[in-house]
Computed example of a mutant assay.
Amino acid sequence: MALTPPAWRHTLTEVPRGAAGVLRLAGKWRAMATGPRGRGEPVMVLPGLFNSDRSNVALRRHLTRMGYRVEGWGLGRNLGQRAIGQDGERLFARIDAMAERYGAPISLVGISLGGLMARIAAHRMPGHVAQVVTISSPFAGPPDATRVWRAYQALSGARIDDPEVRALVGEAGRPLSVPTTAIWSASDGLVGGAICRGEDCAAVEVRSSHVWVQFNPDVLRAVAVALAT
């Protein structure tokens, strides 16, 4: 079966649905401070395309109050392969330094493109990564099965048919040797749910847009539960 981009009815309603998720989080923030808790395990959160650590501040704060030692990736805006291809050593060095600082493998939580990067890092640094949690990350299919591939090309400076890009996508899609959870949505308007989960994952479905998915309270709960499992 051919993998295709999401239905336009979902794509055209991305922003209002994303805004509704943010409003839901504001109303449920205090009540969400319950459930499975961590015991100080280190967690790094990787942002989505063209986003920085500021984009996932709510997720990091939630995981911190749930008992984890949480850090952002600290590499500015996510410009795609520049962080895992040409400048890949920067990301891997950050992971290595964090694991050494805490004396334990770290969990990687990646949003959209950040999830592909998290999976690639887990492949290359298995002794440094405890587990991977991806959020709306299209690692199980081709880039042109999304509605963001043109934006990726414009922002990253790379073409999706470049051999390096195809190799990185293929690497991200290979089964991992560490536990992994894939959080996905059938109503995602930018990447189809079918390419956001794989056979190696514990797949968790939520109802969410792609835009501001990291502010959706159901997603925040799902990440905390996955890390505690």
Score class of each variant (00 low, 15 high):
P138A: 07
L176K: 06
D162M: 10
A172G: 09
V169P: 02
P138E: 08
V169K: 01
D162V: 06
G173P: 04
R166T: 01
R150L: 03
P138L: 10
Q153A: 02
D161C: 10
P175H: 11
G170C: 07
A140G: 09
P143F: 04
A167L: 04
V178Y: 10
A151R: 11
P163W: 08
E164D: 15
R159Q: 09
S137Y: 04
P138V: 13
P143D: 03
G157N: 05
S156Y: 02
R174L: 15
V148T: 14
A167E: 12
G157V: 03
D161P: 05
T146F: 01
A154C: 04
E164R: 15
V148F: 12
V178N: 14
P138Q: 05
I160K: 06
A151T: 14
I160R: 13
P142Y: 07
G173E: 13
T146S: 05
A167S: 13
S137M: 05
A172T: 02
P175L: 05
A172V: 02
A140Y: 03
P175W: 09
A167F: 07
E164M: 14
P163E: 04
V148D: 06
D162K: 10
L176D: 10
D161W: 08
V169C: 11
G170V: 02
A172Y: 03
P138I: 12
V148A: 14
I160Y: 09
R174V: 09
Y152V: 01
G157A: 07
A167K: 15
S156N: 06
D144A: 11
F139W: 08
D162G: 12
V165W: 07
F139L: 10
G141C: 05
D161N: 15
A140F: 00
V165Y: 12
P175F: 05
